[in-house]
Design a protein around this nucleic acid. Sequence first.
DNA 1: GCGACAG
DNA 2: ATCTTGTCGC
Length: 230
Amino acid sequence: MEEKLPTSLDKKLLPALSALQIRLSLRVRLTPLAQNIETVAGCDVAFTKEAAVAVAVLYRLRDLKLLETALARGPAPLPYIPGFLSFRETPCLLKAIRKLRQKPDVILVDGQGIAHPRGLGLASHLGLMLGIPSIGCAKSKLVGSYKEPAPERGSLSCLFLHHRPVGMVVRTRARVRPVFVSPGHLITLAEAVQIVLKLSPRYRLPEPLRMADRLTKLAKKGRLRPGDDK
DNA sequence: GCGACAG
DNA sequence: ATCTTGTCGC
């Protein structure tokens, strides 16, 4: 006898989560980085039924060298609901990022920063919880409007929401679909864009996100040693 | 009523 | 995101 429908959540849950996002968004700060950035962490999650597996990788920005990796497993609190992704992925991602031996200067996240209906995308949520500067780099947009950027690598086009610039549509590779960059926390849009371009010298997605995505899928299928590379 | 809709 | 074979292109 099935009593609960996977798609029917408590009627009071989403309104409560929306209120929480609005409250948290007021704490997000879009300020210039206080110091030079040496390391950037990339993170991603993969799901299997109700379980989630997250991976955090640490890169040295200067030469894009992989310094370390961390893995964590956990449950998926909620199903995927547009606008509430952070409540599904944040728990496991936090565990993985906190496992890194060295604290990253910046966190790069596969999702939106402030380019969100209530100004608190996954990247902003994670940065705020950790108190670390964060950048949102999504493969597609959630909200806002923009003009298609030029086909050359490095071309930019502002993403607007309510007449306000909340992100930048960035062409990281010539003639390839652009990515959507938005500041998460403790960083400016301009700084976020520069870092993403620096981390994407050859492929559409920044190296940290490509690596995190690859490791996350390896961990889901085959086995992945606690401390393993490539 | 008709689209849009991070992962 | 996840489910999946072959296939077009550099």
